[in-house]
C-alpha cells in the first residue's frame, strides 16, 4: 500500500484561479519523491495539502488508506512531519526546545515531556549532527544549522512521511548535499517516505528516486528523473534559458549563461 496517495486534487486560494488542477500522485515507503517545476506551479501548495495544512476543494488525500483530512490533528502529526521553507521564532528558544516541540503529538495532554521524549530528541540531534548545539539559542545558529534543527524537530515526531518545502533553498552546495544524504539514509534505513518541493533540478535528480513535474497546476510528468527532465520538457517549461548536461550518468541542469548567449 502506498504511504500517501493524492487523487485528483483541485485547490484555489479564495477567488483566484485554481493553483492545482487535478493532481494525482502516490509515494511508497522508503521512497524519496521530488516535486519540481517553475515558480508558481503549485509545489508548496501541494506539499501543504499533503501535510493537512490546507484542504483541497476537490479530490482526496489518503494516508495508508485513511482519509487524511478526517484524522485528528495529533494523530496526523504522529504520521506526517512538515518542514516549512521559513522557520521563525518570536522568543529565544534553544535548539533542544525546538526539537522537543516535535514531541507534542506523542503526549498532547502532558505539560512536561517524558523521559522517552528526551531520549528521542537526543537521538535526532545526533542524526542531524547537532548534539553539541542543543543548548544554543535557535536564533544564534547559521542557516545550515537552523535547517538541520528544524529537520530534527520534524524527525522527533517519528513520522512515516516527511514533507519538506524547499529544504535546501538557504543552503550552500555542500550543506544541501549533506541534507539530501541524511534524508536518503533515513529513507533506506528507516523506511521513511520523503516528499519535497525542490527548485534545484540537479540536486533533485541526483537524490530523488522519482520526480513529479508540476506546471501550471498540473502534474506534467511523474517518474524517473532522467525521463521527467527530458530536453523537450525543460525547453517547453523553461524556454531556452536552461541546458541539460549528462555527466557520468548524472543529470546537471545548467543556466545558459552569458557566454553561451553570445556564442
Amino acid at each position: 500500500m502506498p504511504s500517501i496517495e493524492c487523487r485528483e486534487i483541485y485547490f484555489s486560494y479564495r477567488r483566484s484561479d485554481p493553483v492545482l488542477k487535478g493532481v494525482s500522485l502516490s509515494a511508497s515507503p522508503g521512497e524519496m519523491l521530488g516535486i519540481v517545476g517553475p515558480n508558481g506551479a503549485g509545489k508548496s501548495t501541494l506539499i501543504r495539502i499533503m501535510a493537512g495544512l490546507l484542504k483541497p476543494q476537490n479530490g482526496s488525500v489518503l494516508l495508508e488508506g485513511l482519509m487524511l483530512h478526517g484524522l485528528a490533528s495529533d494523530d496526523r502529526a504522529r504520521r506526517i512531519a512538515y518542514v516549512p521553507q521559513d522557520y521563525h521564532l518570536v522568543f529565544p528558544f534553544t535548539v533542544m526546545d525546538v526539537v522537543l516541540s516535535g514531541r507534542y503529538a506523542h503526549g498532547a495532554l502532558k505539560i512536561f515531556e517524558t523521559r522517552e521524549d528526551r531520549v528521542i530528541a537526543g537521538r535526532v540531534l545526533k542524526w542531524t549532527g547537532l548534539e553539541n548545539l542543543a543548548d544554543r539559542k535557535f536564533e544564534d545558529l547559521s542557516g545550515g544549522e537552523r535547517q538541520r534543527a528544524v529537520l530534527a524537530a520534524a524527525l522527533a515526531q517519528e513520522p512515516e512521511l516527511m514533507l519538506l518545502d524547499e529544504p535546501t533553498s538557504s543552503l550552500d552546495v555542500n550543506h544541501a548535499d549533506n541534507l539530501m544524504a541524511l534524508l536518503d539514509r533515513l529513507c533506506s534505513d528507516q523506511g521513511l517516505t520523503v516528499i519535497m518541493a525542490v527548485h534545484d533540478l540537479s540536486l533533485a535528480s541526483a537524490w530523488c528516486n522519482r520526480l513529479g513535474f508540476l506546471d501550471q497546476g498540473r502534474m506534467n510528468a511523474l517518474g524517473e528523473p532522467a525521463r521527467v527532465l527530458s530536453f523537450d520538457r525543460l525547453k517547453s517549461v523553461y524556454g531556452d534559458s536552461v541546458k541539460r548536461l549528462d555527466l557520468d550518468g548524472r543529470i546537471v541542469i545548467a543556466p545558459r549563461g552569458k557566454r553561451n548567449t553570445n556564442a
Binding site: A51, G52, S73, Y87, Y104, A108, I111, F112, Q157
Partner: peptide
C-alpha cells in the same frame, strides 16, 4: 492559561508549524 503553556511554546513558531506538530 497554564494548561496551555506547552502549546504556547510550540505556537511561537507560528500557526502553520503548530498545526503540523499536532496542535488544534
Amino acid at each position: 492559561l497554564y494548561s496551555n503553556s506547552r502549546r504556547l511554546n510550540v505556537m511561537s513558531a507560528g500557526e502553520e508549524v503548530a498545526q503540523s506538530r499536532g496542535i488544534d
